[in-house]
Nucleic acid binder design. Structure first.
Lengths: 358, 358
DNA sequence: CTGTTAGCGCTTTCAT
DNA sequence: ATGAAAGCGCTAACAG
């Protein structure tokens, strides 16, 4: 499976120089060295020069984590996610990294696959590393980590937490989320303005956590435009391609199938496209489809998928900023930030064909 | 852009309990407490029970990082990458996380976009946090981080490093990479066995870093099967969809265009599919196309893309294991691990159509 | 098996 | 503007 070869040498093992080495070489106290780096304004120019010269020649860099014992800050923030391989999470993580980096913070990312035990374990591990704050992503539809008790425990330790998305079991505290409801309203309204009247909802257990906003947006749009909610056009499925495929098949088997559908996410939408093609339908001529999330795949389908884009990078970036501001001022009031979604019209939406039109 | 609402309370701020609190409550020394957690085998059952009871009632957990000052180990490893949003990197990162977690290690991931300045900065920041080892991903085609000097500096600090992939400016030391050459040989051989004789190479600057193995594999396969290398069938491009589109157009404009092409990566392959369709060709009937990497998108194209899968997760996992073994035994010899690739036959390869056949 | 005694490298009053 | 001294929370000889 993996063949292994030997190749070359080993390391010299020179241990890094400390603040003592520098203070000795520069002929000043360790306090002065310390301050030269952390509060340079307090040190005279001449002294600073001596210090930096010494530091340079010794290749010295202050060790953040040694100071952490005293300062109680590691400049590390923990990001607890389901899976970094999920493109939404990856973009969010990058946003967190960048937002944190702006203030010399680094982030520790953990993937738990939503497993409650691992969540708690990893949380503890991060705490043991002294992370200054946490960003927690959903879905926490189980009362595990998302439980008020666990968050309270974190709070009582004085560790600030920012949550991502809407949680089922916790409502207070700081969090940042997308305006998915508004996004779904836009999506459905787009279909209606195209002339569609029978619009299906391919839900992935829409009544639960993440899908709630979309489900409400769907209903709201119908209401706004004076259309009735027809529950025969609403179907649940796994939030996967296969799930979308099956759900679409069911809708297509109806006596009066919908002329358009909105899917709970892009994968489900792709599954719906599969089912339509199999049935001999052309998208979007015979059936319009809208996804949700705008994952990278959405621009690669044939035709490319119309979808509602969330802004995971911005969400992560905002979350990082919120954590950092909490760190600066622990008395900051809890706040909820809601980021807009955007309808991205690509190739899977068009006016309904004649015989569908009423 | 983001509307903000206030929502609820703030934190109680109870500072966590220390080893002293526990030792006092349990009526033992701090060493005993310490050992109860780190070397439980050295402590009598009775004492341990007292300690754990006290720890539990105080909600005490040892702080890894406080101990790090003494032990010189933070149980943190640093992963320096180009961009966590790249699906290859994300899978690799997940592999690192999982591999590290098996030994209670956590990882700090940084994205540099390949910017040399940020690489060095972030490297220093991670070092300041006391990371025990580094995993560095390519491409380091610039002599920046990839320079022997920088790696030597890391080595001299006694910080072990594992590199991912083949680097241009460094050849020794431990690294893990894919057998891309062998993978490409498989891909081209597959086309040849299908009956193709004129096989194009859509290279993204194939002569450079990451593409080298593929380019060599392409040549090797031709040679194995007694075909001549025809440089008119070889073209360079940006390693993007647009790049692949342009490169394919050039090949298609040839008097005798190829009946099949291998692309340097999946994005380039998708671009090639775009160009073929535009030209009125059907893939794979008129033109066979093979990508490289097997990014998620590859299964979503129409038809789904035949490609060579690398194993980024395994690469990351292996890299983590290598770092950890180096940490256990610093005298471990440098080693190179090469992970196999796998040809994934999907829908873009078929025998050549009649008039292409010689 | 357990306690004593020093620190790890840095920051931080408190003086000067 | 700078130094002395104490200590952050934990571990690690070294004794016993």
């Amino acid at each position: 499976m993996a063949d292994i070869k030997k190749a070359g040498g080993k390391a010299p093992q020179t241990s890094a120089s400390t603040i003592y080495d520098v203070s000795r070489l520069a002929g000043v106290s360790t306090s002065t060295v310390s301050r030269s780096f952390s509060r340079p304004d307090l040190i005279s120019k001449a002294t600073k020069e001596k210090v930096f010269a010494a530091a340079k020649s010794l290749n010295y860099r202050p060790s953040t984590f040694a100071g952490s014992l005293t300062t109680k800050r590691t400049f590390l923030i923990g990001l607890l996610t389901t899976d970094i391989q999920n493109p939404f999470v990856a973009a969010l993580a990058r946003g967190v990294q960048d937002g944190a980096a702006e203030q010399r913070y680094l982030s520790i990312i953990c993937s738990t696959d939503g497993d409650a035990t691992r969540e708690l374990d990893l949380l503890e591990e991060m705490l043991a590393r002294g992370v200054d704050g946490f960003i927690l992503t959903p879905p926490y539809d189980t009362p595990s980590l998302g439980s008020a008790e666990n968050l309270a425990a974190l709070n009582s330790r004085g560790v600030p937490v920012v949550r991502i998305g809407r949680w089922k079991y916790v409502t207070d505290g700081t969090y940042v989320t997308s305006c998915t409801q508004e996004g779904e309203v836009d999506a459905v309204s787009h279909l209606i303005s195209l002339g569609h009247r029978r619009i299906g909802f391919l839900g992935g257990y829409y009544s639960r956590g993440v899908g709630l906003g979309r489900w409400q947006g769907y209903q709201e749009a119908l209401e706004i435009h004076g259309l009735n909610l027809d529950m025969s056009l609403v179907t649940e499925s796994e939030t996967t391609r296969a799930g979308g495929y099956g759900a679409m098949q069911r809708l297509l088997a109806l006596a009066e199938p919908p002329s358009a559908v909105v899917a709970i996410n892009d994968l489900v939408a792709v599954g719906a496209m599969d089912a339509s093609k199999e049935r001999g339908l052309t998208v979007p001529a015979d059936l319009s489809i809208i996804g949700f999330d705008d994952i990278p795949v959405a621009s690669f389908t044939t035709p490319p998928l119309t979808t509602v884009a969330q802004r995971p990078y911005d969400i992560g970036h905002t979350a990082a900023e919120l954590i950092l501001s909490k760190l600066k001022n622990p008395d900051t009031l809890a706040q909820m930030v809601r980021l807009s979604c955007q309808l991205v019209v690509r190739g899977t939406t068009a006016p309904p064909s004649k015989h569908d039109d009423k």
